[in-house]
């Protein structure tokens, strides 16, 4: 088992190398000159050339790539062209906010979707099923920014209960998490429902019923335990997407996260930031997927046995 985890951690390395090279390669094609971004339109050709020479921008692509990756190992991802701050510092100033919002959103999604999906499956093809599925779609049907604005109007402006913007403490997390979390409900409810429907047909539930076990325990203890894997996979996928930043939600609530900042940097052609951020995000998404893989082993002993063999 430990061997498997170590193997999976090592497998992150080639993924990160590939992602970083692709990002680096694409950024090289972008028709924009970092020297112009840094020095402004008024700079002379000599000043620009001097900037390029001193920052190593004239070296071949591969040389620059190797130098860049060497820097990352020391926590150096270059400086932002736009404001001269260290990209590393910028990332780790923004990322905790993104992570907090992502975790809170996933909690909202999970708490709402799993009961809805389980109930929909147990009451398959009845009006209860329809109600649960419809509820789960509400979040998807309402655009994020619109729901966010409605929530701000109600809870921040009219009731004055919660802050409308910023990231100060738990209270400011509530509205963005609801906005973001409800958008993912439909997918997770569907997956939970279909996974439970598969399990509810299984013979071992009949065995549990024949023992005299109650229906509610059969569903929570026997059935759901077997339906978890697709559900956790979906949660992992949603977590990965959220780590990349929930741009619209961040914009509406002025949430200081990675996503909105990354979009700004692209608009400003601040490619040192874009490259650094995308590489770091690739690393964190890989970590999330690794955690999901390891969780499988705790949910299904057959997978654990497989991991132990591999």
């Amino acid at each position: 088992m430990l061997k498997y985890v170590i193997k999976r951690i090592l497998m992150i390395i080639p993924v990160v190398l590939a992602v970083s090279f692709i990002v680096f390669f694409i950024m090289d094609f972008v028709p924009s000159d970092p020297a112009v971004t840094a020095l402004g339109d008024g700079a002379t050709e000599e000043q620009l050339e001097y900037y390029r020479e001193t920052h190593g921008l004239n070296d071949p692509l591969v040389v620059r790539y190797v130098r860049y990756m060497g820097g990352i190992l020391h926590g150096d991802m270059g400086t932002s062209y736009a404001n001269n701050q260290q990209v590393w510092d910028l990332f780790f100033a923004k990322f905790p906010n993104t992570l907090r919002l992502a975790v809170a959103s996933v909690v909202v999604t999970v708490v709402l979707s799993i009961p809805l999906g389980v109930i929909a499956a147990v009451k398959e093809n009845t009006w209860v099923d329809t109600v649960c599925s419809t509820l789960s779609f509400i979040g998807l049907a309402m655009p994020n920014f619109w729901l966010g604005l409605l929530l701000i109007m109600l809870f921040a402006v009219n009731l004055g209960l919660l802050p409308s913007t910023g990231a100060d403490g738990f209270a400011s997390l509530i509205l963005p998490a609801i906005t973001c979390g409800t958008g993912n409900m439909a997918a997770l409810t569907r997956i939970t429902r279909s996974s439970m429907l598969d399990v509810l047909k299984q013979d071992y539930l009949r065995t549990a019923r024949a023992k005299g076990q109650s229906e509610s325990k059969i569903i929570t203890h026997h059935a759901f335990k077997n339906a978890q894997i697709p559900v956790v996979t979906q949660i992992g996928i949603q977590m990965s997407t959220l780590i990349g930043g929930a741009v619209l939600t961040e914009r509406v609530f002025a949430w200081p996260g990675v996503g909105a900042f990354l979009v700004d940097s692209i608009q400003k052609s601040d490619f040192e930031v874009v490259t650094g951020f995308v590489i770091m995000l690739a690393i964190f998404v890989s970590i999330v997927l690794l955690i999901v893989d390891v969780l499988y082993a705790f949910m299904d002993p057959r997978i654990k046995a497989q991991y132990a063999r591999s």
């Binding site: 013979d203 077997n226 299904d300």
Partner: peptide
């Protein structure tokens, strides 16, 4: 009253 089922490959819960 208790019951023994036909197929032992499917009548036991795989995760317990």
């Amino acid at each position: 009253i208790a019951m023994i089922f036909q197929d032992p490959m499917t009548s036991l819960n795989p995760v317990l």
